[in-house]
Amino acid sequence: MQLITSISLNYKQCVNLFIRFGITSATLVLLVVFLSKISPIDSGLSRVGDQFSDISYQAKNVSLKHGFGFSLLTNNLVLQDIKLAMPATFELATAAMLFAILIGVPLGILAAVNKDKLLDHILRMLCLLGNSVSIFWLSLMAMLLFYAKLQLFPAPGRVDIAFLDEIAQPRFLLISSILDGNWPLFKDALAHIMLPALVLGYYSLANISRMTRLFVLQELQQEYVITCKLKGMPFNQILRRHILPNTAIKLITVILLSYASLLEGSTFVENIFMWPGIGLYLTQSIMVNDLNAILACTIVIALIFITANFICDALYKFLDPRVANV
């Protein structure tokens, strides 16, 4: 068992990681501030509308007061809007991730075990397609097929109109509806989250299953597998007790990185499925050139991304000290 051989992360490496995290975040913020300064866009114009007199537009430039000021779209504080939108995106991303893991990992293992047979080829095709398809096209096609033609899923949106009041506050619908025992809401929220989660999860599915396959294949080549086989261990046991735990760490890092990159994909998926998350907020703000909101969303999403990367790096260092520090 090579699960946790030794946690030999020393103090210096720890500090090093934190410094890198800090520098990355700082660069991000600098980049964003730089963008706001050089942007020729006049955000205020759309607020006031067309007039014959010269009016001084109040919201002329990006204001970092109250943290990014007011949104042109909703007239709320940008940070407030983001706070409302984040749970929706997290719910969607988590659902997509669950789908990707529950289907992707078993598929990857199966493909590795049945290397070069039909199943393997099918999976590799699936992965190739997953990497080649544009996610907005896939969402459009999926909505067309499953909603319009087959009517398997409900209308785009997070909940049905009957439940509109429920999403006025930031909350995780699926969890809180179970906790409240509100079954109709739960069923509705579940039905609405399915199609976007499936589409969003497809890309991660391709990635995860491919990586699982790779890791399992790498493990299968190790000597201890042959040893175990010689000892007469049934393959299932080898799989369960040795191979999987060894791939677990690497897989967890892949999953974590995949989760972060889901945020990028969600910009398109949310746009098409009218899912009120941060991706939809970002694309709508782009449409109206609301620089405050665009840059605030960028920082939030990028910070999450950086944090995920940083956690992965830390995990690698913690759990596998053989990895060279490049």
């Binding site: 990355t24 972060a260 945020l263 990028e264 999403i301 990028a302 991304f305 990367n309």
Partner: peptide
């Protein structure tokens, strides 16, 4: 470490 698409947008 930066998300490519978001920064590009």
């Amino acid at each position: 470490a930066l998300p490519k698409l978001i920064i590009a947008m």
